[in-house]
């Protein structure tokens, strides 16, 4: 029961209070810029969720082994990126072998899902937070799901902004960045800060 509560708390924290997009800006580029369209971004979010979950699970399993190395802080990022690269290679090889048509249409999406701040960030966070393998996997899942939540929030924001009279210089990326900043500010408010006496 305790483990279940722990997992639920971790998932909720990753989704809302420490949302990967709003509080860490992980994978914000994919959310704002990539030309995948609404449906494409949802599919991208699902692929990203799978990537972050598997990557952080592997990181959680590897961390005790890596901790034995001397100068591990120099090599850890390199090892994580090598793991991501190997995972990417395996997935691409399998898809190219089994589902070539689908793969040729979604190749760029898969590349972006593996090589971005979210996948690497999910792995790095397992160390900073000192997670076990199960907690790492749940945290990775939370990071992926938080991207999907951020996608939904941004879609609503875009809909509202499309009917507003925004100054020309702020249209598009600048206004979306400010919007994400305001959502991020509101989440900081949720975490709570003491008022000055």
């Amino acid at each position: 029961m305790g483990t279940l509560v722990n997992i639920f708390t971790l998932l909720l924290t990753a989704l809302v209070l420490e949302n990967a997009v709003f509080s860490r800006a992980l994978d914000i580029t994919s959310l704002l810029v990539l030309p995948f369209g609404k449906r494409g971004l949802r599919l991208f979010g699902m692929i990203l969720t799978g990537t972050t979950t598997i990557a952080s699970l592997i990181a959680g399993l590897l961390n005790p082994l890596l901790g034995r190395w001397e100068n591990v802080q120099y090599l850890r990022p390199v090892v994580y990126i090598v793991i991501l690269t190997l995972l990417y290679g395996c997935v691409c090889f399998l898809l190219n072998w089994r589902k070539r048509d689908w793969f040729s249409g979604h190749h760029s999406m898969i590349t972006m899902a593996f090589f971005n701040c979210a996948a690497y960030g999910a792995m790095a966070l397992t160390v900073y937070s000192g997670f076990s393998w199960l907690e790492s996997a749940v945290s990775g899942l939370g990071i992926g799901l938080s991207f999907l939540l951020a996608l939904f929030v941004l879609e609503q924001g875009r809909r509202c902004m499309s009917i507003c009279n925004i100054p020309k210089a702020f249209r598009g990326l600048p206004s979306e960045l400010v919007y994400v900043g305001l959502i991020s500010l509101s989440l900081y408010g949720l975490v709570g800060h003491q008022l000055a006496a």
Binding site: A25, L173, S175, L177, G181
Partner: peptide, 11 residues
């Protein structure tokens, strides 16, 4: 903080 980073970069 991060939220100010978003706003400053957007501006």
């Amino acid at each position: 903080y991060v939220f100010a980073g978003f706003i400053v970069v957007g501006t």
